[in-house]
Write a protein that binds this DNA or RNA. Structure first.
Length: 875
RNA sequence: GGGGGCAUAGCUCAGCUGGUUAGAGCGCUCGCUUCACAUGCGAGAGGUCGGGGGUUCAAGUCCCUCUGCCCCUACCA
């Protein structure tokens, strides 16, 4: 017994139940199957601290559309889920909880206990976001859920670290890095966001020793002068040639510092003199190395002045700045202050201004890794969609610096380097080192630092499949097929996966990178916590359903471009779901048996809808192959709403209500087409399609694993489509005419059709009656009807004797307007066909179409003229 | 300083390798309680595809240029 469907679709009643049904059927599980082709996506692992936001919703929707399509197409479609330990982000969250709940810092607990706390926290909340993904309908293989700090991923991290170290591609060195004083850790270049900020240019006078002269330097960070160890000028600067080699006296400090010449200095900028602070500026650091300058670090890990700062010791960097400026002024060294806007770097996690500081850190040597990673994209092994992102990627890779990978955090992969307390030897090893291989001492300690979070996510496509072990999964599913992500994460993640995959597995980690844009609010602003303009996907799902949310995200969205999100958009999507629901209700209400195959006899409207469907299948498949998901969905949408619901169902009613064999035939075609519709739409709107599909006659256990439709030449009825189009445009014309003249369809009237294709129109006789308010119909090659409303359409003249409703003058005006339009088109057509260039160079098909069009137009013009003449007679 | 994007109907946006009369959703107007659906049905109004130039038989689509927004990237103190 079939269950009756409700009048309005209620996603809340359906979605969780359907998701459970999928889980129970184990339909998302993928296994290596030699009989199938693999299709693999690894999820961009959301932070364990994360809450599902619209960006995730878009990203997961895109992935799910792809994976569901391929699964139905018979691929071994694997979508690997998981989360990222998100070093800084997670540590911040747990530290905040610790502070708020217990008033403690991580130092109060100590490293070991703190890390255990984070694990506890992860166990408690870490799966929240993955549960939220289920609400969206994500068809991940949950049996393969991974975590960047689980055992396997951690093994991979150690393996990679040791390999790179042994190849000399990881080194430890003292260099200028970006330091976040709030997180008290080093950051990579990618983790710093630059913002244009108003600031000042302080011009400071440095006396030259043994003279009464002085030099003026300009700086945006006066506090760094405490660490100055030279003044530099350009060697070609005539102004300063005489003083190069002399000594300057550092104001406030009194230190004697050399005046040096270096090409780095731009003569035309500022005063042409630059203070050199090797420990607090990357350029100065290089200058310092070139000239063997003293390196004086003046800040501690909290960006407070350290003991090298003399009387400023202990002051925070900004307090120190204020004090130093005041002192400079007091002592007469401050020449002037200028307004100056400049780029200030911020920590991408906590937005604190970062400090460039010389520090001993671990780095990945990038040049040798970048080269093959660039080539892989250049030679097409890895393709970006849209293509323009490959340029952005290559550009970035070409200018990449060594990657600072050590973080002074507690939450993360600890660096596998061990130091001997006795002889100082360092040993890098996958295994814990308890005995110094050099001196045999057992006084060993491991490096305190952890690795950049992105170091482990860079390995995600292969670490999740078992690497470094040679697993069957790795062999089968790797390289993965498609990576789906937003453009803002290309540098952090995509680039690093590419060089890591190439270096460690010898293969690029994926074939295609499918890039989408960001989801913005209705005003086009980025959704953010601080603005409070974020729309919660879970609330949208509660209100409208996950299918509606997915539809709203996928429709009218083109690769790589940002999109706006609004309630209206979801409402429209919800309405579409309801439309489909009701179409299905109708089909069910008129069901004749459980047959799923097409009936032997097909009518004109049957052939028309089947032929259209067939083409939609081909188009949509092609669009999805090209990642044109928005276009694909649009085609499915208009086929369902415009062709199936508005036309085919209405036409089918004729036979359904007539009963008997006719009704059965129509019913079976309805079921057949609906089945295909549900399959085409399923990747986009999985819940409602599965729910409906389970209710209609079907083959197989679940739509989620039902075979995806394919184009079939046997269902190509091009000629019938054309015939149907003639009838449809005639029906539309009559409706338009009636609407314009305020004659409701309920007011029936006779219809006379003069046409040279009487057989064609005869096939649609009943259609006119049903859809155009026609009571009786006569179709002839030659017809003359007095006092009739006349409409000229391709291949036919339609006449409705309704003289009492026709104002001859208005009718004449209308016909004249049509005549002018037709003549206009004819002129265009003719001039085109008379154009020699067009005839000789345009494709034959196009010329042929143009000729047909001209003939048809001329025929219509004749008929219009004829009608005008008749109108004259009547008058 | 480099690189990229966007500009199409009142609003938000599609429009693939150039090819009929440029599309959708929302909004708007008119008419419909028609036996799946008013979260609906039918009919409409609304666009010099940012300006200018070029290539082509043919340009919203390709090239150049200008204008206006937006983003990324970069060590000018």
């Amino acid at each position: 017994m079939r269950k009756e469907l409700e009048k309005t679709y209620d996603p809340v009643q359906v979605e969780d139940r359907i998701y459970d049904f999928w889980l129970k059927g184990n339909y998302f599980a993928a296994k290596a199957d030699p009989a199938k082709k693999p299709y693999t996506i690894v999820i961009p692992p959301p932070n364990v601290t994360g809450q599902l936001h619209m960006g995730h919703a878009l990203d997961e929707t895109m992935q799910d559309i792809l994976i569901r399509t391929r699964r139905m197409q018979g691929y071994a479609a694997l979508w690997v889920p998981g989360t990222d330990h998100a070093g800084i982000a997670t540590q911040i969250v747990v530290e905040a909880a610790l502070r708020n709940n217990e008033g403690k810092t991580r130092y109060d607990l100590g490293r070991e206990r703190f890390v255990r706390r984070v694990w506890d926290w992860k166990e408690l909340y870490g799966n929240r976001i993955l549960k939220q993904l289920r609400k969206l309908g994500s068809s991940c293989d949950w049996s393969r859920e991974r975590f960047t700090m689980d055992e396997g991923c951690s093994e991979a991290v150690k393996e990679v670290f040791v390999n790179l170290y042994n190849k000399g591609l990881i080194y430890r060195g003292n260099r200028i890095i970006n330091w976040c004083p709030r997180c008290t850790t080093a950051l990579s270049d990618a983790e710093v966001e630059y913002k244009e900020q108003p600031g000042h240019f302080w011009h400071i006078r440095y006396p030259i020793k043994g003279t009464s002269k002085s030099l003026v330097v300009a700086t945006t960070r006066p506090e760094t002068m405490l660490g100055d160890t030279a003044i530099a000028v350009n060697p070609n600067d005539e102004r300063y040639k005489s003083i190069v080699g002399k000594t300057a006296i550092l104001p406030l400090v009194g230190r004697e510092i050399p005046i040096i010449a270096d090409d780095y200095v731009d003569m035309d900028f500022g005063t042409g003199c630059v203070k050199i602070t090797p420990c607090h500026d990357p350029n100065d650091f290089e200058v310092g190395k070139r000239h063997g300058l003293e390196e004086i670090l003046i800040m501690d890990e909290n960006a407070c002045i350290n003991k090298n700062g003399g009387r400023y010791f202990g002051l925070d960097r900004y307090a120190a700045r204020k004090q130093i400026v005041a002192d400079l002024e007091k002592e007469g060294y401050l020449v002037k202050i200028e307004e100056h806007s400049h780029n200030v770097g911020e920590c991408y996690r906590c937005k604190t201004t970062v400090e460039p500081i010389a520090s001993r850190q671990w780095f990945v040597k990038m040049a040798p890794l970048a080269k093959p990673a660039i080539e892989a994209v250049e030679n097409g092994d890895v393709k970006f969609v849209p293509e323009r992102f490959s340029k952005i990627y290559i550009n970035w890779m070409n200018n990449i610096h060594d990657w600072c990978i050590s973080r002074q955090l507690w939450w993360g992969h600890r660096i596998p380097a061990y130091y001997c307390d006795d002889c100082g030897e360092m040993t890098v090893s996958k295994e814990t080192v308890n005995v110094c291989p050099k001196c045999g001492s057992n006084h060993m300690h491991q490096d305190e630092d952890v690795l950049d979070t992105w170091f482990s996510s860079a390995l995600w496509p292969f670490s999740t499949l078992g690497w470094p072990k040679k697993t069957a999964d790795l062999d089968y599913f790797y390289p993965t097929t498609t990576l789906v992500t937003a453009y803002d994460i290309i540098f952090f993640w995509v680039a690093r996966m590419i060089f890591s995959g190439l270096e460690h597995t010898g293969k690029p980690p994926f074939k295609t990178v499918f890039i989408h844009g960001l989801v913005r609010d209705a005003q086009g602003r980025k959704m953010s916590k601080s603005l409070g303009n974020g729309i919660d996907p879970l609330k949208v799902i509660e209100q409208y359903g996950a299918d509606a949310l997915r539809f709203a995200l996928a429709t009218n969205n083109s690769p790589g471009n940002d999109m706006r999100f609004s309630d209206e958009k979801v409402e429209a999507s919800r309405n579409f779901a309801n439309k489909l629901w009701n179409a299905a209700r109708f089909v069910l209400m008129n069901l004749h048996g459980e047959e799923t195959a097409l009936p032997a006899h097909l009518t004109l409207d049957d052939k028309w809808i089947l032929s259209k469907l067939n083409n939609v299948v081909a188009d949509v498949t092609a669009n999805i192959d090209k990642f044109e998901l928005g276009i694909a969905l649009d085609k499915v949408y208009s086929f369902i709403w415009d062709d199936f619901c508005d036309w085919y169902i209405e036409l089918a009613k004729i036979r359904l209500f007539a009963g008997g064999e006719q009704a059965e035939g129509a019913s079976r075609v309805l079921v057949y087409v609906l089945d295909k519709i549900l399959k085409l739409l399923h990747p986009f709107m999985p819940f409602i399609t599965e729910e409906i599909w389970q209710s209609i006659p079907h083959e197989g256990k679940a739509l989620v694993v039902a075979p995806y439709p394919e184009y079939s030449e046997a269902l190509n009825f091009a000629a019938d489509e054309e015939d149907m189009n003639l009838i449809m445009s005639a029906i539309k014309e009559i409706r338009a005419k009636r609407a314009a003249m305020n004659i409701p369809l309920s007011k029936k009237a006779a219809l006379f059709i003069e046409t040279d294709k009487p057989e064609t129109f005869a096939k649609g006789a009943e259609f006119f009656k049903r859809l155009a308010g026609v009571s009786e119909i006569e179709i002839e090659r030659e017809l003359s009807v007095a006092n009739a409303l006349t409409m000229v359409v391709p291949s036919a003249k339609l006449m409705i004797p309704m003289n009492e409703l026709v104002d001859p003058e208005k009718e004449r005006a209308r016909l004249n307007k049509e005549k002018a339009a037709a003549e206009n088109e004819i002129t265009r057509c003719e001039s085109r066909l008379n154009n020699e260039g067009f005839i000789s160079k345009a494709p034959a098909k196009l010329i042929e179409d143009e000729r047909k069009k001209l003939a048809s137009l001329k025929e219509m013009l004749d008929k219009i003229n004829d009608s005008l003449a008749k109108l004259g007679e009547i008058k």
